[in-house]
């Protein structure tokens, strides 16, 4: 198994090796990240990457097929514009984790700061702790499951993403409302929790989504436009 020690080797050597892995399902270990930026970005081919410590900005960005585990916390822009695969952070994540993500699964076992899942486009996010303000802003599709609480203005201007929160929501953003939890939603939460390897009772979650009043053109209001 290739081991990259970032105290000894440049970051580009790691990312170049990951980009060249060619789908051989290899495993990589990354030592001494010490908050480095852009660790394991743009991983296109299936491989497992274990990062032994906290990372800085943009870890796992644009991930396509990598299975990335960070044994520590993550800085801003974790898994930004993620396309597929899986990113797991054992600690907390800073702001805009999973922003604009298109696909795959992002698991944050700790808490995420502000703007988690902003402009979500199909990625699934499971957060073991809480999320900060303005999370899921303009989220278009994808799911978010939050075991803790949500900060101010959750789901502001949301489109068709679905949000499940077990704890309290400080406030809902414009056009975001609570919706009834039906069996299909409890099944969806159960699937996402299982995929994330986190135990919780789906019955404890509440669902939030779009009231669909903001983004639809309403012919009765034509005079107002």
């Amino acid at each position: 198994m290739p081991v990259f020690d970032l105290a000894e080797q440049p970051l580009r050597a790691l990312n170049a090796a990951l980009h060249a892995s060619g789908g051989d399902n290899g495993r990589f270990e990354v030592l001494n990240p010490r908050g480095a930026h852009s660790v394991a970005v743009g991983v296109e081919h299936p491989c497992e990457i274990e990062v032994m410590g906290p990372v800085g900005y943009y870890c796992g960005g644009m991930n396509e097929a990598g299975e990335i585990t960070v044994r520590g916390s993550a800085g801003p822009g974790l898994a930004e514009n993620m396309m597929g695969g899986r990113v797991v952070v054992e600690g907390d994540a800073s702001q805009y984790a999973g922003a604009t993500g298109h696909g795959g699964l992002l698991v944050i076992r700790g808490s995420a700061a502000s703007r988690c899942g902003i402009s979500l486009k199909g990625l699934d996010i499971v957060v073991g702790g809480s999320i900060g303000h303005m999370s899921a802003f303009m989220a278009q599709s994808g799911r978010m499951v939050v075991l803790g609480d949500a900060g101010e203005a959750l789901g502001d201007s949301i489109y068709e993403a679905r949000i499940y929160v077990r704890g309290t929501v400080k406030s809902l953003g414009t056009d975001c409302i609570e919706k009834p939890m039906r069996d299909e939603h409890r099944a969806e939460v159960a699937d996402l929790l299982e995929a994330a390897g986190i135990a919780a009772d789906p019955a404890d979650f509440r669902r939030y989504g779009s009231a669909r009043k903001l983004y639809h053109f309403d012919v009765d209001h034509a005079d107002a436009y």
């Binding site: 908050g35 906290p54 990372v55 800085g56 900005y57 916390s73 800085g75």
Partner: peptide
């Protein structure tokens, strides 16, 4: 400002 500052 970042974790890097604390790593040592």
């Amino acid at each position: 400002s970042e974790y890097r500052a604390l790593a040592g």
